[in-house]
Write a protein that binds this DNA or RNA. Structure first.
Lengths: 338, 338
DNA sequence: ACTCGTCTTTGAATCGTTTCATTTGTTACG
DNA sequence: CGTAACAAATGAAACGATTCAAAGACGAGT
C-alpha cells in the first residue's frame, strides 16, 4: 500500500506483461494506444516511480557524471560546476559534485565512490597523483577529463586555462604601472598556483631591478589571505612590497581586509593588489579588485563536451583545450607608486 | 579483461562461493583468516569494485540524501550544503545537491530524480507547493526536512531561522541610528523575503514618522541589486530613501556597486545599507556591509540530524528547529543621517 | 481455407549484489 | 568411538528493471 510499486505491480494492475509496461516507458511506439492508456492509468494510480538502481544494474552504466573540485565554496569552481551541470542536463545526465578540499585522501574517497556508482565519466581538478587511477578507469571504459589542468593527451582529455600566461599578465601589469618589488601570495604546492608564480617570475625577469618575494599562504581562502595580510601590516613601510599578486581572489580579498583594516596602508598607493579568477565579488570589494578573468562557463561546458566526445570515440582519442585568461584592471592597481 | 570484475569473478578466482566474498566485504568476522586473505588478494588482483547499483537494488534504499537549494551560487546555500555534506559523510551517506534556481519545474525535476534514486531522505528549500509530494514521500518511507522554511510539524521536520525577527532586527537598527525613510529591496514572492519584509514593517510601525518603500528586484543576485541601485541613483536626492535593507547580501553588494560607482551617493552618510546572510564577502565590500548573520553550519548539520531522527522513529515524529539570527553592524550603517 | 506479413504482446533470462537456510568441517567431551 | 556444539562456507533466491526471441492476433491476398 504505502510501499513503492514495482513494474510488476503495474503489470498486474493493468493486466499486461511486465515487458509491455517496460515498452510503454521506453518504446511507446511499440505499444497500441489502448494498452498504453491502460498502463499509464495504472502507473498513475499506483504512483509508480522507476527504480533507478535496477535500471543501472541492467544497463551496466549510470547516467551520472562525477565532478571533483578543489573547493565548492570558491566561486570559480561553483561557476564551473554550474556550467557543467547545465551542459550535462541538456544531454540527459546528472552531475554529482564532490569537494576534495585539496586533500588527496578525500579525492581518493570520491573517486572510489564514483567508481562504485559506475559513473559515465569523470571530471576532475586533481590534487594528488591520479594518473594510475585514470588509466584504470579508461581501461574500464570510464573516460576522464581533467579540469583546470593540462593533460598528457596520450592519456586523457583536459580543459584548462594558461596559468603561466595569467601569472605573466598579472605581474607584467604591476610592472607596467611602475611597481618593482612584488610579492606573490599563494600555495605553490598547488600546480595552478605554481604555474601562475612561474609566469610572474618570467615577467619579473624581463625587467631589471624587479623582484618577487614568495609568501606561502595556508590555503587559498579569505582567511588565509587575512593572515598573510596581517604579516604585511606588521612590517615597516620600507620592508613592504609595492605590489601583491594573489593566486586567487579569495586570498586577495583577505589580504585587502587586513591592509585596509588599520588604515595605515593605502591600496593602491602604498601597495597595489591583484587577484586571480575575477569572481563576482572582486568588483564590489573595498577597493575594486584587479584580477585575471578565466572563462568558467566555457570550462564547464567544454569539459562535458570532451567527455561526450570520448564516449563517442570509445576513449581512444584525447584532446586538450586551453583557454587564455584575460587581465581585468580595476582600482586596486590604479596609478603608480610614490 | 578490461571490463569490470564482478563478485562472481572474484569468487571463481579465489575458489570460494559468492556468498563468502560478500561476507568478506560485509561481515569480515564470519570468515576465517585464511579465506579472507585469499579473497582480498583476488579482489586486489582483479581490481574488483563493488557495484553500487546492485547493492542498492538489493537493499531497497540508497545511501544518498537529496538536497535541493534555491541557488548554489549563493554562499549562504553553499555553506549550508557543505555543512550537510560533512554531517552526512560522518554517517556514511552522500549528499546529492540539486539547484532549483527558484524554479518550481526544476524543483520538481530534482524531486523526480531523487525519488527514482530512492534517496534515504530529502532536504529541501521549497519554491513551489511541495506539500503533496512530501506526503507521498513520507508514506513511502522517505523522510523530508525543510531547510530554511518553517514546517507544519504534523507533516515533516524543519530547520529554519526566524526571518521575521531578522527583518525586524535589521529595520530596528536602521531606525535606531536615526533613519526614517527606509526602502526594502527583494523579491517578496519568496517566502523568506516576505517574512523579512514583514519583520521590517513591524519595526517601522513602532516608530512614528517612519516608512518603508518596497523595491521589487528581479531575483536575488548581485546583478538584480545593481539594477535596483541604478534606479536609486537616478532619483533626486530628496526622493531617495535614507536607508536600504536588502533581503540578501548579494543584492546589497549589487546596490552598493551602483551607488558607489558614480560617487554621487555616499554610504552610509547619504544612504545606509544593510544586507542579510552575512556572507564572507560582506566584510570585504567597498564599504563593509552590515548584515544579519544566519547560522549556516548549524542549519546544515541539524538538517541531517533531524533526518536521522526521522529515520529512527520511522517518520512518525517531526520537529521544527528554529534558530535566531544576529545583527552584525559594520560601516555601511554607521553614524546617523544629516 | 490457407499463407504471409505486420503489429502487438509475452515472459524467461539477465545484470551484481546480499541474505539465509543448509551443508560441511572441526573440536571437545562423555 | 559417537555426537553435540560451534564455526565456516555454500549456493539458490530475491531485488526491479530491460531485452529479445517467440508466440499471438489480425487482415490481405490468392
Amino acid at each position: 500500500m504505502s510501499q513503492t510499486a514495482s513494474i510488476k505491480d503495474v503489470a498486474t494492475h493493468a493486466q499486461v506483461a511486465v515487458g509491455t509496461v517496460s515498452n510503454v516507458l521506453n518504446y511507446p511506439d511499440r505499444v497500441s494506444q489502448r494498452t498504453k492508456e491502460r498502463v499509464l492509468k495504472s502507473i498513475a494510480e499506483l504512483g509508480f516511480v522507476r527504480n533507478d538502481a535496477a535500471r543501472q544494474l541492467r544497463a551496466g552504466q549510470s547516467r551520472t557524471i562525477g565532478l571533483i573540485v578543489l573547493d565548492v565554496g570558491n566561486p570559480f569552481f561553483s561557476s564551473v560546476a554550474r556550467a557543467a551541470e547545465d551542459a550535462a542536463t541538456a544531454l540527459g545526465s546528472v552531475v554529482l559534485v564532490g569537494d576534495s578540499g585539496q586533500d588527496a585522501s578525500r579525492e581518493a574517497h570520491y573517486m572510489d565512490l564514483f567508481q562504485e556508482q559506475r559513473v559515465q565519466g569523470l571530471l576532475i581538478s586533481p590534487v594528488g597523483d591520479v594518473g594510475a587511477r585514470i588509466d584504470t578507469l579508461r581501461e574500464r571504459g570510464v573516460p576522464t577529463v581533467l579540469v583546470d589542468e593540462l593533460a598528457d593527451t596520450e592519456r586523457c582529455s583536459s580543459v584548462s586555462v594558461d596559468d603561466q600566461e595569467g601569472g605573466y599578465l598579472a605581474a607584467k601589469h604591476l610592472l607596467d604601472t611602475g611597481r618593482r618589488r612584488l610579492a606573490f601570495v599563494g600555495t605553490p604546492s598547488i600546480r595552478q598556483v605554481a604555474s601562475r608564480l612561474k609566469g610572474a617570475q618570467r615577467a619579473v625577469a624581463e625587467v631589471s631591478g624587479a623582484s618577487v618575494e614568495i609568501l606561502d599562504s595556508a590555503g587559498q581562502t579569505v582567511l588565509a589571505g587575512r593572515q598573510v595580510g596581517n604579516g604585511l601590516v606588521e612590517r615597516s613601510p620600507e620592508e613592504r612590497p609595492e605590489a601583491v599578486f594573489c593566486s586567487n581572489d579569495l586570498l586577495a580579498l583577505g589580504v585587502m581586509q587586513s591592509l585596509t583594516m588599520l588604515r595605515t596602508v593605502r591600496i593602491p598607493e602604498d601597495i597595489a593588489l591583484i587577484g586571480y579568477d575575477d569572481i563576482d565579488f572582486a568588483i564590489s570589494a573595498v577597493v575594486p579588485l584587479s584580477s585575471i578573468r578565466q572563462p568558467t562557463e566555457a570550462l564547464g561546458r567544454t569539459a562535458i563536451e570532451l567527455l561526450a566526445e570520448e564516449q563517442d570515440n570509445g576513449g581512444t582519442k584525447h584532446r586538450a583545450v586551453v583557454f587564455t585568461p584575460e587581465l581585468v584592471v580595476r582600482q586596486s592597481t590604479a596609478g603608480s607608486p610614490n
